[in-house]
Write a protein that binds this DNA or RNA. Structure first.
Lengths: 142, 142
DNA sequence: CTACGAGTTCGAGCGCGCTCTAAGTCAAGC
DNA sequence: GCTTGACTTAGAGCGCGCTCGAACTCGTAG
């Protein structure tokens, strides 16, 4: 499998695949006679797992630690396990945090639902009060 | 309240507070005789809500849209509500995604738990096979 | 033979959200 | 009257994770 097909099948771009190889997230791929990368389908499993780590917010730096342990082979199981367990705790904490925020959002939305009045108009007036004289000179976020 | 105290009480840095004002996330603050920002405690409520939006992954660009509607005042309730409802859906989707990933993590961790063997050692060997000849020239992520 | 498309390397550039520095002003305490 | 420390502005810089462009090499189809 060449890089184009792997890109299609993995959902990454060829650019990203090469980038991941450069930084060590993907193993250095064997090349064919014309130095083109030739992948085994098994790489897809690894890429998919990396995707889960990424989706759950693991920084690349830590994925690299995991990938390095993996390369070291069979003796590193306990360390890899510990790394994943730590990460799992972080993800659980994140989910709890998001759920807490969802409650706040629900409340806020309910406030708007009250004939689109009361609470929020009050907020808006407060806000506008603070805006009074000022205006002008803005800046855009970059 | 001056910026230093607001920083302490809000958890933001003074730098960040000024940055938020520059881009329009915070209203332009009144200044005292020596051009120092003088805040009303009510700003804390707004900052806290912005914190929830941020925690739930809303990009600044969208917070700005919300802040702008707020400044426009009482007529914009329905639009603000719609914006928050859209966001809430995204957060819910995110939570679902994280929960799905947690299941994968659980499975993977369970795999390591099996006397630290089997599944993962197999993975590791496959990986090492693909690493064979290659090594050398690395690159660090920036 | 040539044109095409898919691959290669190297390194620069980007979007996001801050974060920090420099150079200056001001008010209060010794 | 001088120092100290918190404030001011404008603008540069950073860490992350890609993303893209330039210039090149191949292999195959017409």
């Amino acid at each position: 499998m060449k890089i184009g097909e792997l890109a299609r099948r993995s959902g990454l771009t060829a650019h990203t695949i090469r980038y991941y190889e450069r930084i060590g997230l993907l193993p250095y791929a064997d090349r064919d006679r014309s130095s083109q990368r030739d992948y085994d389908v098994s790489i897809l499993v690894w890429i998919e797992f990396l995707g889960k780590l990424k989706t759950t917010g693991m920084p690349i730096r830590e994925m690299l630690r995991y990938a390095a342990l993996r390369e070291l082979g069979s003796g590193t199981g306990p360390q890899r396990r510990a790394l994943l367990e730590r990460h799992r705790e972080q993800v659980r904490a994140r989910v709890a945090e998001l759920n807490a925020c969802l409650l706040v959002l629900d409340t806020k939305i309910d406030g708007y639902a009250d004939s689109d009045k009361r609470i929020d108009d009050y907020d808006a007036e407060l806000f506008q009060h603070r805006q009074q004289s000022s205006r002008a000179r803005q800046a855009r976020p970059r």
